[in-house]
Simulated assay, not measured.
Amino acid sequence: MIRSAAEFGARVREHRKKQGWTQTQLAERCGTGERFIVDLENGKPSCQLEKSLIAARTVGIDLGDLKTAAPPPATEADDDLGYLPRFS
């Protein structure tokens, strides 16, 4: 399970590199600018969701159907939702 923008960006970077693409090449395939890909891979939390999903699908990340995806078994660490960012 991806729990943060940083983890999501790292997953996109990993898959992009497996494809042998540069950030510029991925940006061209997604119809975005290179700066967006850089920010996405660096885990910028304010990246646009739609563009992020396009980039993930472009590099082959299967996001699945959120309505039918079974949630992973809860662990004690999940119960407190401590992994979620806190905004003050």
Rank of each mutant, 00 (worst) to 15 (best):
M1K: 05
M1H: 11
M1L: 07
R3W: 02
R3E: 03
A5N: 05
A6E: 04
G9L: 07
G9N: 14
A10G: 14
V12F: 08
R13V: 01
R13M: 06
K18E: 15
Q19S: 03
T24N: 10
T24S: 10
Q25G: 13
A27S: 11
R29H: 15
C30W: 15
G31Y: 01
R35C: 04
R35Q: 11
R35L: 03
D39I: 00
E41F: 03
G43C: 02
P45D: 08
Q48M: 05
E50M: 04
E50N: 13
E50A: 14
S52M: 09
S52W: 04
I54R: 15
A55K: 12
A56T: 07
A56H: 08
R57E: 14
T58E: 15
T58A: 07
V59C: 07
V59D: 14
I61T: 06
L66C: 06
K67F: 08
K67Y: 12
A69Q: 15
A69Y: 05
A70W: 04
P71D: 13
A74R: 14
T75F: 11
E76D: 14
D79S: 07
Y83T: 00
Y83W: 06
L84E: 08
L84G: 03
L84P: 04
R86H: 13
R86N: 05
R86C: 11
S88M: 10
